[in-house]
Structures are given as C-alpha cells and as structure tokens.
Amino acid sequence: MNTCINKIRELSFELLDKGEVEKVIGFANGTIPMATSPIAITSTKDIETLVFNSTCGLNLANYIRQHKGKIAVIAKGCDTRNIVTHIVENQVQRDQLYIIGVPCNGMIDKTKIASLFEDDIIEFSEDGNALTVKSALKEETLNKTDYLRQNCRLCLHKNPVIYDALAADLVEEQTLESPYPDVKKIEAMTPDTKWQHFQDLTKNCIRCYACRNACPLCYCPTCFVDESGPQWVGKGQNTTDVNTFHFLRAFHCAGRCTDCGACVEACPMDINVRDFTRKLNKDVFDLFGWEAGLDITKRPPLDAYSPDDPDDFIK
C-alpha cells in the first residue's frame, strides 16, 4: 500500500498544481489509531495528509456530489461502482470527476481486531499482508486476510470499474462459488428464527442514522425518516419504527447497493445492516442478473420497466 499512496500523492499534486481540479477527496489519518477519515485538500501543501491503507473503509463516492467545479477522488473498486451509480442517477457528471482508481485488497474489520484486546489500541501499522496492532497490554501481529471485513472477503470487484488513472497495478479478481453464503443461511431459517434474527439484529439500534449518512446512496435532500408531513415512520425507539427504517432504507438501496460496507463501518452499535441490503442484492442478481454500478449507461432494474422483467410471481 505504500507505493500506492506515493502514486496517489504524486497524481494529486500534479492535478492541484496544474489547477486541473479544485480539490482532491481522499483519506487522512483519524484522531485515533486504526482509523482514517475523509478529507478534501485544495492545496498542494496538504498533499502529505493524504493516506491510504487497510482502514479506509468509508466510501468517498459519498462526498463527490454538489460540487460546481472539477474534483479528483480516490476510489476503491466499490467506490467507483458508487460513482457510476451517481453518474447514472444524475448526481454528478462524468467530466466533473478525475477518478484515481485504487485496486483494493480489502479493508480490515476493526471491530474484530479490537475484540482481540481488552484495552484500547494505541498503534496500528501494516506491511503487505502483516498487520501490527499494539495496545498498552500487548502487541499482536496479524495476518490481514484473516481480518478482512466480510464484504471485502466476498468482493467480486476489487478493481475500479471506472477511472482516469490507477494508483497501482490491477489485482486479480476472485471468483466465488457462492457469493451469498450469509444470505443463504438466513434464507434457510424458519420464519420464527428469521424473525428473531432480525429482531436481535436491530434491537440495539439507536437510530443515529450513521449508516444512512455513510451511505453514498442516501443523498435525498430530506430523508423519509426526517419528513413530518406526511410522517412516513415514527421517530422513537418503537420496534416497528426501527424496523421500518431499516427495511425501507434497504428497499431504497435495492439494485443500487455495491456492498461497500460503509454502513457497517459507520455503525457505532456494530449492527450488520448489510443483512438487509445483501438479501436485496442477491434477489436483484437472481431476478435481473444485475450488479450495481458496473454500467454507466444502464439504470438499476427497479428504476426501469422492461417487457422482459420477470413476472413469475404474478399468477
């Protein structure tokens, strides 16, 4: 990843220096170890603040909307797919963007790593596949492949699907026999177990909407949960309302979600909200053969009507 950040900085410098873009959107180190946060730099002197490593789990496509001029953005495979979705959905024009694509080997599951330690992590570094994590009590060297986020382990589009420049060589894409083992497991449950599974899943939700805010798909000026006339959903902690929020957010993402994992990354309560979105991703794939964000010329299947749409469910 080191060579990659050099290339990112080099490209960004050139773009800013020549005035080709107004700003570069990338990652900077966070305020705590093993964390990065999005940053927009407008000056070449801030170039060194840009970083890229296995903790850059947020989706920068979320920050490219509503700019007047041209911007550059650092984008992993999933980020580029969301950029495609943005272009299709009229949120940004292709010629407004300079996409610095990063072939990605996956982001780490911070919760899983943190759970190895009883106290706070004070230092994190990586070298290739080796992660070194330190707390006041101990130091661990971990194998990155064992600590990838689940969405990264199941990722089929590690390489950027759209870009102007690459920050590293393309990586080999994996093929999976079963890309949705988690969904299949839930599908196999009895209705009661399934009901319980989702009850347990959302019971800790505090409705902070961090998942929504991290999601590049959630760009509505007024989200349905915030609307009071009509009030689509109650505002409190009522189970039905909490579930309604999650169901509907998932529905809104159907056929558009790239499974970038930003929602789960952002969740302070460690709720795997991808249980909702992935089921819909699988359905959309099964029904329409569709994966979101691969084609700049096509709208998601639920946005369009075609006489060939599957209609076996209509009797």
Binding site: E89, N90, Q91, Y219, P221, D303
Partner: peptide, 15 residues
C-alpha cells in the same frame, strides 16, 4: 422541487 434529489427514477420509470 425542494425535496427532489434529481435522481431520475421518475423520468425512467414513467410509462
């Protein structure tokens, strides 16, 4: 128009 996000679903979906 104040609430419209310009996503174009309506434009695409209207028969």
């Amino acid at each position: 128009p104040m609430v419209c996000s310009s996503c174009g679903v309506c434009v695409s979906i209207c028969p």
